[in-house]
Protein backbone atom coordinates (compact mmCIF):
# COMPACT_ATOMS: atom_id res chain seq x y z
CA UNK A 1 0.00 0.00 0.00
CA UNK A 2 2.96 2.30 0.54
CA UNK A 3 3.37 4.93 -2.12
CA UNK A 4 0.03 4.16 -3.75
CA UNK A 5 -1.75 7.40 -4.50
CA UNK A 6 -5.07 5.55 -4.83
CA UNK A 7 -5.24 5.03 -1.06
CA UNK A 8 -4.03 8.50 -0.14
CA UNK A 9 -6.55 10.06 -2.51
CA UNK A 10 -9.38 7.96 -1.14
CA UNK A 11 -8.41 9.00 2.39
CA UNK A 12 -8.19 12.64 1.30
CA UNK A 13 -11.66 12.41 -0.19
CA UNK A 14 -13.17 10.69 2.85
CA UNK A 15 -11.63 13.14 5.34
CA UNK A 16 -13.12 16.03 3.34
CA UNK A 17 -16.59 14.83 4.39
CA UNK A 18 -15.88 12.86 7.57
CA UNK A 19 -14.92 14.64 9.76
CA UNK A 20 -14.19 17.99 8.04
CA UNK A 21 -17.51 18.41 6.22
CA UNK A 22 -19.41 17.39 9.36
CA UNK A 23 -17.34 19.84 11.38
CA UNK A 24 -18.03 22.81 9.12
CA UNK A 25 -21.79 22.19 9.31
CA UNK A 26 -21.76 21.89 13.12
CA UNK A 27 -19.54 24.97 13.32
CA UNK A 28 -22.00 26.91 11.16
CA UNK A 29 -24.93 25.83 13.31
CA UNK A 30 -23.13 26.77 16.56
CA UNK A 31 -22.24 30.20 15.23
CA UNK A 32 -25.76 30.69 14.02
CA UNK A 33 -26.85 30.58 17.67
CA UNK A 34 -25.18 33.99 17.92
CA UNK A 35 -27.65 35.31 15.36
CA UNK A 36 -30.70 33.55 16.67
CA UNK A 37 -30.14 33.62 20.43
CA UNK A 38 -27.45 36.28 20.91
CA UNK A 39 -24.42 35.95 23.21
CA UNK A 40 -26.33 33.54 25.49
CA UNK A 41 -27.00 31.12 22.67
CA UNK A 42 -23.47 31.35 21.34
CA UNK A 43 -21.81 30.74 24.69
CA UNK A 44 -24.21 27.84 25.32
CA UNK A 45 -23.00 26.38 22.05
CA UNK A 46 -19.37 26.90 23.02
CA UNK A 47 -20.09 25.35 26.43
CA UNK A 48 -21.82 22.39 24.89
CA UNK A 49 -18.88 21.68 22.61
CA UNK A 50 -16.39 22.05 25.43
CA UNK A 51 -18.42 19.74 27.64
CA UNK A 52 -17.98 16.86 25.21
CA UNK A 53 -15.78 14.09 26.62
CA UNK A 54 -12.11 13.74 25.62
CA UNK A 55 -12.16 17.14 23.91
CA UNK A 56 -8.39 17.30 23.31
CA UNK A 57 -8.46 13.91 21.57
CA UNK A 58 -11.51 14.90 19.52
CA UNK A 59 -9.78 18.08 18.49
CA UNK A 60 -6.55 16.38 17.53
CA UNK A 61 -7.91 13.32 15.75
CA UNK A 62 -11.24 14.78 14.65
CA UNK A 63 -10.03 18.13 13.33
CA UNK A 64 -6.34 19.03 13.42
CA UNK A 65 -4.85 15.90 11.89
CA UNK A 66 -7.58 15.40 9.23
CA UNK A 67 -7.33 19.10 8.36
CA UNK A 68 -3.55 18.96 8.07
CA UNK A 69 -3.64 15.81 5.93
CA UNK A 70 -6.47 16.97 3.69
CA UNK A 71 -5.08 20.51 3.48
CA UNK A 72 -1.46 19.67 2.72
CA UNK A 73 -2.28 16.79 0.38
CA UNK A 74 -4.95 19.03 -1.17
CA UNK A 75 -2.33 21.66 -1.97
CA UNK A 76 -0.35 18.94 -3.75
CA UNK A 77 -3.46 17.81 -5.66
CA UNK A 78 -4.12 21.41 -6.69
CA UNK A 79 -0.51 21.75 -7.84
CA UNK A 80 -1.01 18.68 -10.06
CA UNK A 81 -3.91 20.24 -11.97
CA UNK A 82 -3.92 22.55 -14.95
CA UNK A 83 -6.50 25.24 -15.50
CA UNK A 84 -8.08 25.20 -18.94
CA UNK A 85 -11.22 27.27 -18.38
CA UNK A 86 -10.08 29.52 -21.23
CA UNK A 87 -10.47 26.69 -23.71
CA UNK A 88 -13.35 24.80 -22.09
CA UNK A 89 -15.77 27.32 -20.65
CA UNK A 90 -18.15 24.85 -19.03
CA UNK A 91 -19.71 25.31 -15.62
CA UNK A 92 -18.25 22.05 -14.32
CA UNK A 93 -14.78 23.01 -15.52
CA UNK A 94 -15.08 26.34 -13.69
CA UNK A 95 -16.13 24.44 -10.58
CA UNK A 96 -13.08 22.18 -10.97
CA UNK A 97 -10.77 25.20 -10.94
CA UNK A 98 -12.79 26.88 -8.19
CA UNK A 99 -12.46 23.72 -6.05
CA UNK A 100 -8.69 24.15 -6.17
CA UNK A 101 -8.65 27.93 -5.73
CA UNK A 102 -11.06 27.77 -2.78
CA UNK A 103 -8.96 24.95 -1.30
CA UNK A 104 -5.94 27.25 -1.21
CA UNK A 105 -8.03 30.16 0.13
CA UNK A 106 -9.50 27.89 2.80
CA UNK A 107 -6.00 26.76 3.76
CA UNK A 108 -4.87 30.34 4.38
CA UNK A 109 -8.12 31.39 6.01
CA UNK A 110 -8.36 28.44 8.39
CA UNK A 111 -4.86 28.96 9.76
CA UNK A 112 -5.44 32.68 10.25
CA UNK A 113 -8.82 32.13 11.86
CA UNK A 114 -7.56 29.38 14.19
CA UNK A 115 -4.67 31.63 15.16
CA UNK A 116 -7.05 34.47 16.03
CA UNK A 117 -9.35 32.30 18.10
CA UNK A 118 -8.33 28.84 19.30
CA UNK A 119 -4.61 29.55 19.53
CA UNK A 120 -5.30 32.65 21.61
CA UNK A 121 -7.17 30.38 24.05
CA UNK A 122 -4.24 27.95 24.10
CA UNK A 123 -1.85 30.84 24.74
CA UNK A 124 -4.01 31.95 27.63
CA UNK A 125 -4.69 35.38 26.15
CA UNK A 126 -8.43 34.75 26.24
CA UNK A 127 -10.81 32.17 27.69
CA UNK A 128 -13.49 30.16 25.94
CA UNK A 129 -16.06 32.55 27.46
CA UNK A 130 -14.43 35.50 25.75
CA UNK A 131 -14.62 34.04 22.24
CA UNK A 132 -17.86 35.94 21.60
CA UNK A 133 -16.21 39.27 22.27
CA UNK A 134 -13.15 38.21 20.29
CA UNK A 135 -15.42 37.62 17.33
CA UNK A 136 -17.04 40.98 18.02
CA UNK A 137 -13.65 42.67 17.69
CA UNK A 138 -12.90 40.82 14.47
CA UNK A 139 -16.29 41.29 12.83
CA UNK A 140 -16.38 44.99 13.72
CA UNK A 141 -13.16 45.63 11.84
CA UNK A 142 -14.30 46.30 8.25
CA UNK A 143 -11.21 44.75 6.65
CA UNK A 144 -11.39 41.62 8.78
CA UNK A 145 -15.12 41.41 8.14
CA UNK A 146 -14.62 41.37 4.38
CA UNK A 147 -11.75 38.87 4.64
CA UNK A 148 -13.89 36.65 6.86
CA UNK A 149 -16.80 36.75 4.40
CA UNK A 150 -14.43 35.77 1.58
CA UNK A 151 -12.85 33.02 3.68
CA UNK A 152 -16.22 31.64 4.75
CA UNK A 153 -17.64 31.66 1.22
CA UNK A 154 -14.52 29.92 -0.09
CA UNK A 155 -14.61 27.24 2.61
CA UNK A 156 -18.33 26.58 2.19
CA UNK A 157 -18.10 26.44 -1.60
CA UNK A 158 -15.18 24.06 -1.25
CA UNK A 159 -17.22 21.84 1.05
CA UNK A 160 -20.42 21.91 -1.04
CA UNK A 161 -18.74 21.34 -4.39
CA UNK A 162 -16.48 18.79 -2.69
CA UNK A 163 -19.56 16.90 -1.53
CA UNK A 164 -20.75 16.75 -5.13
CA UNK A 165 -17.35 15.37 -6.19
CA UNK A 166 -17.22 12.99 -3.24
CA UNK A 167 -20.50 11.40 -4.33
CA UNK A 168 -18.87 10.66 -7.70
CA UNK A 169 -15.48 9.60 -6.34
CA UNK A 170 -17.15 6.90 -4.25
CA UNK A 171 -19.49 5.82 -7.03
CA UNK A 172 -22.71 6.96 -5.35
CA UNK A 173 -23.98 9.28 -8.12
CA UNK A 174 -23.25 7.59 -11.43
CA UNK A 175 -25.46 8.75 -14.30
CA UNK A 176 -25.74 12.33 -15.56
CA UNK A 177 -29.19 12.72 -14.02
CA UNK A 178 -28.05 11.66 -10.54
CA UNK A 179 -25.08 14.01 -10.82
CA UNK A 180 -27.29 16.88 -11.92
CA UNK A 181 -29.74 16.39 -9.06
CA UNK A 182 -26.88 16.15 -6.56
CA UNK A 183 -25.43 19.38 -7.97
CA UNK A 184 -28.72 21.16 -7.19
CA UNK A 185 -28.71 19.76 -3.66
CA UNK A 186 -25.08 20.79 -3.16
CA UNK A 187 -25.86 24.29 -4.43
CA UNK A 188 -28.67 24.44 -1.87
CA UNK A 189 -26.25 23.34 0.85
CA UNK A 190 -23.84 26.07 -0.26
CA UNK A 191 -26.53 28.75 0.07
CA UNK A 192 -27.81 27.54 3.43
CA UNK A 193 -24.45 26.98 5.14
CA UNK A 194 -23.07 30.27 3.76
CA UNK A 195 -26.11 32.06 5.14
CA UNK A 196 -25.52 30.51 8.58
CA UNK A 197 -21.96 31.81 8.68
CA UNK A 198 -22.63 35.24 7.22
CA UNK A 199 -25.63 35.89 9.46
CA UNK A 200 -23.53 34.96 12.48
CA UNK A 201 -20.71 37.26 11.33
CA UNK A 202 -23.27 40.06 11.10
CA UNK A 203 -24.62 39.17 14.54
CA UNK A 204 -21.12 39.24 16.06
CA UNK A 205 -20.90 42.92 15.11
CA UNK A 206 -23.72 43.68 17.59
CA UNK A 207 -22.91 45.60 20.79
CA UNK A 208 -24.25 42.80 22.96
CA UNK A 209 -21.10 40.83 22.13
CA UNK A 210 -18.94 43.77 23.14
CA UNK A 211 -19.66 43.83 26.90
CA UNK A 212 -16.97 41.35 27.73
CA UNK A 213 -14.64 43.03 25.28
CA UNK A 214 -13.13 45.36 27.86
CA UNK A 215 -11.95 42.29 29.71
CA UNK A 216 -10.06 41.22 26.66
CA UNK A 217 -8.13 44.36 25.93
CA UNK A 218 -5.08 42.13 25.87
CA UNK A 219 -6.45 41.12 22.50
CA UNK A 220 -4.93 44.12 20.82
CA UNK A 221 -2.05 41.83 20.00
CA UNK A 222 -4.26 39.96 17.56
CA UNK A 223 -3.67 40.57 13.91
Amino acid sequence: MKGNSYFSRKLHSLLGIIPLGGFIVVHGLTNYQAFERGPEGFSNGVHFINSLPVIPLLEIFGIYLPLLFHGIYGLYVAYQSNTNTGRFKYGRNWAFTAQRVTGVLTFVFVFWHVYQTRIQVYLGHITHEELGSTMNLIASNPTYFVLYVIGVLAAVFHFSNGLWAFLISWGITIGPKAQRISSYICMGIFVIVSALFILSLVAFRGDEFKEAASAVLTLTNIG
Partner: peptide
Protein backbone atom coordinates in the same frame (compact mmCIF):
# COMPACT_ATOMS: atom_id res chain seq x y z
CA UNK B 1 -6.22 1.20 -8.05
CA UNK B 2 -2.53 1.96 -8.31
CA UNK B 3 -0.56 5.17 -8.77
CA UNK B 4 -1.95 7.26 -11.60
CA UNK B 5 -5.14 5.23 -11.77
CA UNK B 6 -8.74 6.30 -11.43
CA UNK B 7 -8.04 8.52 -8.41
CA UNK B 8 -6.51 11.08 -10.78
CA UNK B 9 -9.96 12.15 -11.97
CA UNK B 10 -10.95 15.52 -10.53
CA UNK B 11 -14.42 15.69 -12.11
CA UNK B 12 -13.93 18.63 -14.45
CA UNK B 13 -16.09 16.63 -16.88
CA UNK B 14 -14.48 18.21 -19.95
Amino acid sequence: MTDGGIEGCGNSQN
